[in-house]
Every structure is written in C-alpha cells, then in structure tokens.
Write a protein that binds this DNA or RNA. Structure first.
Length: 413
RNA sequence: GUGGGCGUAGCUCAACGGUUAGAGCACCGGACUGUGGCUCCGGGGGCUGGGGGUUCAAAUCCCCUCGUCCACCCCA
C-alpha cells in the first residue's frame, strides 16, 4: 500500500481550490470594505496560550489539541483556533496603542477529532477580530458584515442565532441559579449532564437527550439574569441588527465551547450539512486580552469554516479564464510555437501546449477533454502565411488569424 | 472517545459461499491520412482497502486493522 495522507488531513484539489479561492477573495474584499486589515500569525504557539485562553476544562484543551514537545523541551501546540494567537500578537506588538484594531486572518487549524463530513483534523478558518471597541454596534456591524459575505457567495439559508452569556458580574450569579435548578431535577438528567452541574452547567441546556430537554424546559434563562449593562448591550445589538435589516433569532440555550466569551455570542447555521451545520460562530470576549497579560480591551470576533461553506456552494459553476490548447504540427511549427507561446503568455493569455504526437484528431479530442475554449493550430500552411488557425470549440467555427492579433482573440471567452 | 452503515476498474454500482469478478460512464485506438462533441467497432485496465482465520472453495462468513459516512460527543 502506498503512502496516504494522514487521517483527517485532506488534499484540496483543482476544482475545489477555485471555490476556496473565491470564498477567500470575496471575504477579504468585504472585510476590507469594513476597514479590516490582514494579520498572519504562526500555526504553532506555546501550549500555555491555549490553556489560558480557551480554558483548561474545555473539550478542545482536554482532548483535542495536537501538543508536542520540541527539541528544546518546550510544550508547543498546533493552533486549534485563531483568536488566541491573534490576541497574543496584539499584546506582543502593543497594537493596543491604536484606538481600535480590526484584523482578519485565514488559515489551517488543528483539532484531534473524529473526522466527519464538514469536520476534519486540519480545517481552515477565515476569522476576523475587532479589538478595542466596546460598542454593541461593533457586534452588530461584524454580524452584518458576515451575513453580507454569505449573501455575496450565495450561501442559501444561512440562519443567525444569538445569545448573551453575560459578564463577570452576572454570569456567576446565573450559573449558581442554574446549578440550583439542575440539582433539583438531577434524577431526570442524563449521566453526562449530572456531571455538568458542577463542571459546566450551561452545557446541560444544550443537551439533546430528550429527558434532559424535558427536565430543563423551565430552567432559568440567562437572558433574564443579565445585569443592566449586559442587558442594555444585548438590546442595542439587536436594535442595530434590525436597522441593518439582519434577521436573528434569539436562543438563550446556545452555549459556546470556549471559556473566554462574554455578552454576545452567535452561531450561523445552514441546512444541508448534516449535524456539523455551523458555518460561522463567535462572539464578544471582553476579558481575554487582560487575561493574557494585556490592558483591559473589549473585543468581538468570529470564525468561518471554509470546508463547510465550500460544501454549500460547490454546485455553483465557477467561471475561469478561457483556456486555449496549442497544437503544433511538425518540427518547424513546434519551434515557432515556443516563441509564440512565450510572447502570448507574457501578454497574459492562458494557454497550454499539447506536446503529444498523436493524430490531429486525437489531439483535438484531448483539447476538448481538457475543457479548452479554443484550439490553436499551427501547421505548414499557417507557418507560410504567418497565421494560426483558431478554432472556437463551442461554436466549431474556425478562422485564420495573424500571430500578432491571435492573443487578443483567445484572451476573451 | 462511544455506537452503527459502507469499502469491488478513474467514477457510479452488479456478482446465491461455487467457471477466467461484470455493466454503464470515463479512457485509448479504429471507421474518418490537417479538425473535438454524435454513432458504430475494437482495446487496456482490478493483490474485490490491508492482514489473519473458517472452508474442498471467500468479493461474499468470522476476527483484527485502515479508510469513509451517519449518529453521539463536541465544534467552524
């Protein structure tokens, strides 16, 4: 058996790469319009960064990280998400000297999970972070930008769900109320959720076990436990979204898997992806920068799962620049072809030569198979007259054109 | 990490435990000596994912393993 790729690590092949390229191009264009700049951060970070940001008791940290010791004896980790590295860089380079930093990134993330459709061990995210803006309008603006992106790349049926997780003031109070409630219905909960009462009570609200869903039906809602500041913030976000014409449904049971979130959290899902249906998610993390050693800085950020978005728009026909296949007949034509191709490509024409020696028939067939828009034939007749025969593969019409103007003809589809 | 389905030609899939594992599409060649797509004819392709076991006989049954998909868990 020959060597294969590592489980959960995929090759993205031509056909798909065009879709990916388009997603990235449109995202970057829209982000730029909203004033964001690109940041590139390393794929490997010190393990401690993720322990402190994501949370030591989260699933990601406890069982999904690619952690190893390097030759120097340092514990390093392949980044499982993009926010922590960006925040690290923000602090390290003192970007907080600026009034606000709007940053976006794109690249691979790594989590040791069981691969599934739309879930791989190396997966790609496009993310954006607003650092240094406490206004609820920046939450709404980021969400508006995101929904605009999905509209532009033609993702159908993207649904926005939101929640607020409160802050350091009101979340602990709510957590206790929820713990008390859950303890009261402990008998009806699944084994998993019983453990959650102490470890992570919010998770119980998210459980799909029918018994748990029934038992938590009348559990206290976090939205009713928000402190004044958090409530005002959440209301403002909703108002701004409405003003932007963005529909959002409120889901007080939606919980995030990372510890650093505060106030607004959200998830955008799309039908047709099975159970891995979140195509983007994120929220506010007002405490993270300080937690990692920087000045207190309110932030909002999100990440998009490129594989999942690519699955949704795969059907859309990708337009490419027209391809031309060059067919030279005979030694002299081949020599002339070398010079012509060089000159034409320098002018930006997308053209490949068919170097095979089969019959013209078979070479035409090959050109057709390669998806050529045009076939350019250079034989004895054309050599004499300083022309090439350009065959339009769609209409089957053919004309002889001088070497000078041929590249203009085949440049257009 | 748990439970389940599925791995046969490049692709989609056939083949009751029993000849040399087939079909469609794709590919290559010919009919058509400088012209593709349609038609007809011919051809090449497979360690049946891998390893072990049961059997006179395994693509088929059993075990292990790898991969993939679904659900759970979790998440983008």
């Amino acid at each position: 058996m020959s060597i294969t790729a590592v489980r959960g690590f995929n090759d993205i092949l031509p056909g798909d790469t065009e879709v990916w390229r388009r997603i990235e191009d449109i995202a970057f264009k829209i982000f730029s319009a909203y004033g964001f700049s690109e940041i590139k951060v390393p794929i490997v970070e010190k393990t401690e960064l993720f322990l402190r940001s994501i949370g030591e008791t989260t699933d990601i940290v406890e069982k999904e990280m690619y952690t190893f010791t390097d030759r120097h004896g340092d514990s390093l980790t392949l980044r499982p998400e993009g926010t922590a590295p960006v925040v690290r860089a923000y602090i390290e380079h003192k970007l907080y000297a600026n009034p606000v930093s709007k940053l976006y990134y794109s690249g691979p993330m790594f989590r040791y999970e069981r691969p599934q459709k739309g879930r791989y061990r190396q997966f790609y995210q496009i993310g954006a972070e607003i650092l240094g803006d406490l206004s609820p309008r920046s939450d709404a603006e980021a969400l508006t930008m995101l929904m605009r992106l999905f509209e532009e790349i033609d993702v159908r049926g993207a649904e926005l769900q939101m929640n607020s997780l409160g802050d350091a003031l009101c979340r602990p109070v709510y957590k206790q109320r929820l713990k008390d409630y859950l303890s009261g219905v402990k008998e009806k909960l699944c084994e998993n959720c019983r453990r959650r009462i102490e470890a992570n009570p919010l998770r119980a609200l998210d459980c799909k076990n029918p018994g748990c869903m029934e038992a938590t039906k009348s559990a206290p809602s976090i939205l009713e436990s928000l402190c004044g500041a958090c409530k005002t913030h959440f209301d403002k976000v909703r108002e701004c979204l409405e003003l932007s014409g963005i529909e959002a449904s409120i889901n007080p049971r939606m919980v995030r898997g990372l510890d650093y979130y505060t106030k607004t959290t959200f998830e955008i899902t799309s039908a047709g992806l099975g159970s891995q249906n979140a195509i983007a998610a994120g929220g506010r993390y007002d405490g993270l920068v300080e937690e990692l050693g920087g000045p207190a800085t309110p932030c909002f950020g999100f990440a998009i799962g490129i594989e999942r978005v690519a699955l949704l728009i795969k059907e859309n026909g990708m337009e490419r620049r027209p391809l031309t296949v060059f067919i030279a007949l005979g030694d002299e034509a081949e020599r002339k072809g070398v010079a012509l191709l060089k000159a034409w490509r320098d002018r930006g024409v997308r053209i490949i030569e068919d170097f095979s020696e089969g019959s013209l028939k078979s070479r035409m067939k090959k050109a057709d198979r390669m998806g050529a828009r045009y076939a350019v034939i250079l034989g004895d007749d054309e050599l004499k007259s300083g022309t090439v025969a350009i065959k339009d593969m769609k209409s089957a019409s053919q004309e002889k054109v001088s070497w000078e103007i041929a590249p203009d003809r085949i440049a257009i589809g």
